[in-house]
């Protein structure tokens, strides 16, 4: 067979065009992020690229800005709590869907995806509106909102981990005398531990990157990092933003690689490689 068959039937020229298109697309995809990282080392006020020098000035600025640092910490805590909440609740839901309501699985899975199908702006205003009716602390509402938008991801990720668990392992444990709780604790949970950890990390990333929920629910001293940046950028824009976002990007790349090592990112993103 000629080699061109292996690349899906591009002829020589179309193949060149194809390769160029793919390269340009990657350039398009990555340029804005790479440029942010370069800009963060800019010594001047301008959001300019190419940079005119090299300095850590904006990282200092970030570290010394109370507003940004406290927003960063707030986002961190919020993300951790939301991730734990969404992973725990998501595990229970995924487990129930597979083990108790297996026949209604399709329907159940679709229902858990609900927050993905509603624009996040609407989720957010609903939460604000809820606060006018029910007295709830704003931060708690924000946390609940983040748990809600993380749940579709955690449920889907844990579902696919659970799918990979051999039912016979649980059956074997049952016949050996283990109660359902014991089986869950001693067999199921250890087997899906990588999936749970990935769900945790992914939920953290979703929460940390969220703008829409926090946009309506942030208050003084309880502002998430993206909102602090957004508010700042509405008035001015200096490379301090580049420094902050570079830190954020670095953090996310590390976390993303961790997921990749654990279960494979594609798994979490529910990108199907095989025919169903």
């Amino acid at each position: 067979m000629p080699r061109r068959d292996e690349i899906g039937g591009w002829g020589a020229l179309p193949r060149f065009i194809g390769a160029a298109a793919v390269t340009l697309t990657y350039l398009f995809l990555l340029a804005p992020i790479v440029i942010v990282i370069f800009t963060s080392f800019n010594p001047t006020e301008a959001n300019a690229f190419p940079p005119t020098g090299l300095s850590l000035r904006w990282y200092h600025e970030f570290a010394e800005s109370d507003g940004f640092v406290s927003a960063f910490l707030f986002s961190l805590w919020l993300g951790i709590l939301a991730a734990i909440g969404a992973t725990a609740i998501g595990f229970l839901a995924a487990y129930a869907l597979l083990r108790f309501f297996a026949r209604r699985r399709e329907l159940g899975q679709a229902l858990t995806m609900l927050p993905m199908m509603i624009p996040h702006v609407l989720i957010s205003i609903s939460l604000v509106f809820m606060l006018t009716v029910v007295e709830l602390p704003e931060t708690l509402t924000l946390l609940l909102g983040h748990i809600i938008i993380c749940l579709p991801f955690t449920v889907a990720g844990i579902l696919s981990s659970l799918d990979a668990v051999d039912r016979n392992l649980e059956h074997a444990a049952f016949t050996l005398g283990a109660s359902r709780a014991r089986v869950m604790w001693e067999v199921t949970l250890p087997l899906i531990a990588p999936g749970l950890l990935s769900a945790l990390i992914f939920a953290f990333i979703v929460s940390f990157g969220d703008v829409y929920i926090a946009l309506f629910l942030s208050g003084p001293g309880k502002t998430t990092l993206p909102i602090e940046i957004f508010n700042y950028m509405n008035w001015q824009s200096t490379p301090v933003i580049a420094a902050i976002t570079s830190v954020q990007v670095a953090m996310i790349v590390v976390l993303g690689l961790a997921i990749e090592r654990l279960v494979g990112l594609r798994h979490v993103m529910r990108i199907e490689e095989t025919r169903r």
Binding site: L169, H171, A172, A173, P190, L191
Partner: peptide
């Protein structure tokens, strides 16, 4: 019970 694929706990 001995299962077809043995169902040994892999961990």
């Amino acid at each position: 019970v001995v299962f077809q694929n043995y169902a040994l706990f892999p961990h």
